[in-house]
């Protein structure tokens, strides 16, 4: 059986900038896998390549064995890939409700949309209180919740999370990681990109370390946390 998601020798460019230089990543169904690396390493670019926001020049990206390398973002979404992009990217002038409805774009049954929305309110009670508020007026933490909930409205098979803890108070960061675990326990596979490598490795089963567009390490989280280089560079230990 092929892994749920598999990147083979993926090269991605922004104009002349070679952002991914032959990346190989796989994610098995049910896993939480994390991608760590410093600024500009290519973490977001990896996620963007998977969801089709940028098209990779070379290599292949497969979902459940099916080649999705040159598909459009909306086609990839329809196949079960959810992407919470860097910086949340809430629709600022749509209400919380409308943002969630947009997340369930391919769901036609109103009852089903309502059921999922109710589920999201269980997960993020704050969103229920902010139901009719414009997305742009939410606080940073609330926007992050909304971004995750919006992606979950499509009930993706795999969720790509790009720095969900960015800009959040430490208490909220804990909360977000709790949510990540819960979502995973409910059956969603997760590929998590994080600056906060310690937290990420704590929730993930396996991890990859990216450095300027290339993978330099891959191992189980436990092993990565004990790796000298990882400790020094990403966990800030001496």
């Amino acid at each position: 059986m092929p892994p749920l998601l598999e990147l083979q020798n993926v090269h991605t460019f922004y104009g002349h900038i070679h952002a991914l230089k032959g990346v190989n990543i796989y994610v098995e169904e049910g896993e939480i896998v994390t991608l760590v690396g410093s600024n500009g390493a290519g973490k977001s670019t990896s996620l963007r390549s998977i969801s089709g926001m940028v098209r990779s020049k070379q290599g292949s990206i497969r979902l459940d064995g099916q080649d999705i390398t040159s598909m459009k973002p909306h086609e990839i979404t329809a196949l079960g890939v959810g992407h919470v992009p860097e910086g949340r990217r809430i629709f600022p002038l749509l209400t919380v409700q409308e943002n969630l409805e947009i997340g369930a774009w391919n769901v036609t049954s109103r009852a089903e949309i309502n059921r999922r929305m109710e589920e999201m309110f269980q997960l993020f009670p704050r969103l229920r209180e902010r139901f009719q508020q414009k997305g742009g007026t939410l606080s940073g933490g609330e926007q992050q919740m909304l971004a995750i909930a919006r992606a979950l409205m499509a009930e993706p098979r795999i969720l790509l999370l790009d720095e969900p803890s960015m800009g959040l108070a430490p208490v909220l960061v804990e909360g977000i990681f709790e949510i990540v675990k819960r979502i995973n326990a409910q059956g969603t596979t997760i590929l998590l990109v994080e600056q906060n490598a310690l937290m990420a490795l704590e929730v993930a089963r396996r991890g990859y370390v990216l450095q300027s567009g290339s993978l330099v390490l891959q191992d189980t989280s436990a092993n990565l946390m004990n790796n000298e280089m990882v400790k020094r560079v990403y966990l800030g230990e001496n």
């Binding site: 969801s51 926001m53 973002p73 979404t77 992407h83 990217r89 629709f91 947009i102 997340g103 499509a154």
Partner: peptide, 21 residues
């Protein structure tokens, strides 16, 4: 109409939501 508004606010993200931009 909601889809059009989403596209007008953030085209790339609208695509991520499954909207055929």
């Amino acid at each position: 109409g909601r889809g059009i508004r989403a596209v007008s606010q953030d085209m790339a993200t609208a695509g991520l939501m499954g909207i055929n931009v």
